[in-house]
């Protein structure tokens, strides 16, 4: 994976104000970035197109599927509905920041253990959402987990195993 830490400059139209890129500093997966961002760029597009962090997926691009879920200052949001420029000074954690091959986050390990995915497209969003769910602390029972995970669709229908995986990590209490 290529990490473009020096962003592309904004489209050159010095006099036309709407075309100007703007500066913003974001900490992404623990790394500070000084970025130039076109104001109409969503956080999702910034991550995928400008920073090469393609773990976060674009599903519906309208906040209806949850595939783009990331943690913003520790709380889960839909990255497709946030203008990146508005997040100056914020911290973003994507699935790449939760764990890596050989150093899996407990939720990643539990998703494998419980066979909680088929095609895998929704999985990064499911895992970020589950990390947010555990941090928020409003879910204890299976019913509450399912309700609190309702913002993440899985078109393969792996919901039963997803709930199992999330519940296991929730009950063990070892999510980082």
């Amino acid at each position: 994976m290529t990490h473009h830490t020096s962003p592309k400059a904004g489209t050159a139209h010095a006099s036309a104000a709407p075309m100007a890129s703007m500066g913003a500093s974001l900490t992404i997966n623990g790394t500070p970035h000084q970025l130039l961002i076109e104001p109409w760029t969503t956080l999702l597009d910034l991550l995928r197109e400008q920073l090469g962090l393609t773990g976060t997926k674009k599903g519906c691009d309208h906040g209806q599927c949850g595939a783009c879920t990331v943690l913003l200052d520790g709380r889960r949001i839909n990255s497709c509905l946030k203008l990146a420029v508005s997040l100056d000074g914020s911290e973003v954690t994507t699935v790449e920041g939760l764990g890596q091959a050989g150093r899996l986050h407990p939720l990643q390990a539990a998703f494998i253990e419980h066979d909680a995915f088929q095609c895998g497209y929704c999985t990064p969003g499911q895992i970020c959402s589950a990390a947010g769910l555990i941090a928020e602390g409003h879910a204890r029972s299976r019913e509450e987990v399912r309700e609190q995970m309702s913002g993440n669709l899985c078109r393969c229908g792996a919901y039963t195993n997803i709930a199992d995986a999330v519940l296991e990590v929730l009950e063990k209490g070892d999510a980082r």
Binding site: G63, G66, T69, L72, R75, R76, I77, N78, L81, K82, S129, G132, L133, E136, Q148, S150, G151, N152
Partner: peptide, 9 residues
């Protein structure tokens, strides 16, 4: 209403 992600934002 909505989902946890949306309510957080």
């Amino acid at each position: 209403g909505a989902s946890p992600q949306l309510r957080n934002a």
